[in-house]
Each structure stands twice: as structure tokens, then as C-alpha cells.
């Protein structure tokens, strides 16, 4: 398998804070690669190192088979990116912005070609409007058009759906999938939402406090056999006793309430069993164990101070 990004032992220390700690991962060619972590986990710092915005304290980055440090220009010529929010020149029009980005990327496109790029993200009609009049979603789409203007092999998107409405999120998601499936681009996309990454990514990497927590194929990490089912019934003690008397007992997990770990395909059968045995079910919620794990990561470091009146 060929890798588009190959990172080894990447570390960044800001004064006394280690933002990224000995991070290693490989991004396969042609895939959508999800990069997950809570806010402050080190995602943006990692992405900035991949794009030469900041210098690593140690470690190596190879992109498109070339060492980033020594072949910076060649690598960036094949790369398109949006880092955090797509900041563009607000006092310029959409067409002027994309034209500048094309020239900076080393490509010369005619006005018609630039308009086609804007058309791809639904902004052709606003080509001559100044960016300061655009909504957040339009800016995001223009940012994506600018990132794609040099027809890059690798596209790096840092939280591309931040600040978008549901329709905007769906549009960006569809564009990412289309770029990967139809055009064979490799897309490295970061997010702090597992739900967002799991619908797009072929592979994923989870980091916490700058360290790798999990990496692998999405289908392996999100395998349906790891589905957790949380039950709430009229009488939890009686229900638990009932479940222990038959095949469901093997799925029962320790802890408060009723929690079962099973293959996702078996969830309807459990529901039928409960109904047939007259159990009054208030709620049956299934979620992937990785989601639980990821949630624990994202909430572990958050606390709210409360003050007495």
C-alpha cells in the first residue's frame, strides 16, 4: 500500500507545553483519513506542521514520498488546504481571491477556468461580489475552491464544517466524498466530532493530549460487534434477571443500569425478546463503544466550576 503522508515521531514543544508528542501515522493514497481529537488535543498543531506553518521540535514528515523539510515547494504544489476557518481577502471579490490563490500555487488559469472552479462550489454567480458580503458557508465553499484550484493530490482540511448550518455541513461532506471517490484525491480531514468523521472516513486516527490513542480502518475501529446497548425499563432489576436466564447474559456488562455489548445486527432481536416477555421499555439506545470512549476523552478534561450563591 502506498502512503501519501508518512509521519514518524512528530513532536512539537511550545516552551513548556508539549502540544504534539511522538506522533506517528500513515495516510493511504486515495482515502478520506479522519483525524479526531478534542479541542486542544493537538490536531491543528499537527496540521500546521504538515503544512510547514510551524517547525517540528523533532520527528519527520514525508508527503507524496518526499521529505517535507527538503522538498517543501514540490510537496505544497501538490497540496491544497484549509486551516481552521477559511480566511480570505475580505476586500477582494471571490474571483480575485481564487485568481491570487491560483497564481500563488503556480498555476495560470483563464477567467473561464476560474469561474468553473467557483461553479463547482456554487459561487459562480457571486464571482464579482466582495468576500466581506459572504456568509460563513459561502466563505467555507470559496476556501475549498481556493484549496482545489491547483488540482492537488492531497487535500488537508482542518475542521471544515465548523460554523456551517446543516445544509452546509452536508454539502461539504458530499464534496469531500466526491473528491475522494470520483477524483481519487487523498483527503486528510480533522474534526472533534466522531459522528462527522465516521460518515466520511475510510481510516481514522484519534489523538488526545498530543498522543495517538487509536488508529486504523474505520470499519475495524467502528466494528458493529462493538455496539453498546443501554436499556431503561420499568423494573431494571427484574429485566436484568430475565436477561441473565438466557443467551443475552453473555452480552451483559458490569455497571449501573443495564448495559449490553453485542453485534449491531442483534439489537432488533433483543428488542423483540423484551417485548415478547412483557418488559416495559422506556428507552433502548445503541451506540458504538468507540463513541463512548471518544466521549470520555473529550469530556475527561472538561470541568465546570460552580459557585455558591
Amino acid at each position: 500500500m502506498s502512503f501519501i503522508i508518512d509521519v514518524k515521531g512528530l513532536t512539537k514543544v511550545f516552551k513548556e507545553v508539549t502540544a504534539v508528542d511522538d506522533l506517528s501515522f500513515s495516510v493511504p493514497k486515495g482515502e478520506v483519513y479522519g483525524f479526531l481529537g478534542q479541542n486542544g488535543a493537538g490536531k491543528s498543531t499537527t496540521i500546521r506542521m504538515l503544512l510547514t506553518l510551524i517547525q517540528p521540535t523533532s520527528g519527520s514528515v514525508s508527503i507524496l514520498g518526499k521529505d517535507l523539510l527538503h522538498h517543501r515547494k514540490e510537496v505544497l504544489r501538490q497540496t491544497g488546504a484549509i486551516i481552521e476557518k477559511p480566511d480570505l481577502y475580505k476586500y477582494l471579490t471571490a474571483l480575485e481571491n481564487i485568481s491570487i490563490m491560483a497564481r500563488l500555487s503556480g498555476v495560470r488559469l483563464t477567467k473561464q477556468e476560474l469561474l468553473r472552479q467557483l461553479e463547482r462550489v456554487g459561487l459562480a454567480e457571486r464571482a464579482t461580489s466582495k468576500v466581506k458580503t459572504f456568509s460563513q458557508g459561502m466563505k467555507q465553499r470559496l476556501g475549498i475552491a481556493c484549496a482545489l484550484v491547483n488540482n492537488p493530490q492531497l487535500i488537508i482540511l482542518d475542521e471544515p464544517t465548523n460554523g456551517l448550518d446543516p445544509q452546509g455541513i452536508a454539502d461539504v461532506r458530499n464534496l469531500i466524498l466526491s473528491l475522494s471517490k470520483d477524483e481519487g484525491k487523498t483527503i486528510f480531514v480533522s474534526s472533534h466530532l466522531l459522528s462527522e468523521i465516521e460518515v466520511m472516513a475510510d481510516s481514522m486516527l484519534i489523538i488526545d493530549k498530543g498522543k495517538k490513542v487509536a488508529e486504523g480502518k474505520a470499519e475495524d475501529l467502528l466494528h458493529p460487534s462493538d455496539t453498546l446497548v443501554q436499556l431503561e425499563t420499568a423494573n431494571d432489576a427484574e429485566t436484568k434477571k430475565l436477561l441473565l436466564q438466557n443467551r443475552w447474559s453473555t452480552y451483559l456488562q458490569n455497571g449501573n443500569g443495564i448495559l449490553l455489548k453485542m453485534h449491531r445486527a442483534e439489537v432488533p432481536a433483543l428488542n423483540t425478546f423484551l417485548v415478547q416477555n412483557g418488559v416495559e421499555v422506556f428507552s433502548l439506545r445503541s451506540k458504538h463503544s468507540l463513541e463512548d470512549y471518544f466521549l470520555s476523552l473529550t469530556t475527561a478534561n472538561q470541568h465546570v466550576d460552580t459557585y455558591p450563591n
Binding site: 500546521r48 503544512l51 510547514t52 506553518l53 517543501r72 515547494k73 514540490e74 505544497l76 504544489r77 497540496t79 488546504a81 486551516i83 481552521e84 476557518k85 480566511d87 480570505l88 481577502y89 475580505k90 490563490m101 500563488l104 500555487s105 503556480g106 481556493c146
Partner: peptide
Amino acid sequence: NMGTLRLLVTKPIS
């Protein structure tokens, strides 16, 4: 301040 510096630095220019 505008955030465009990072755009410039990620382009293939020295």
C-alpha cells in the same frame, strides 16, 4: 490578523 498569512505560507513559495 486577517488569517491570510497561513494561506500564503502554505503555498509553494519560499
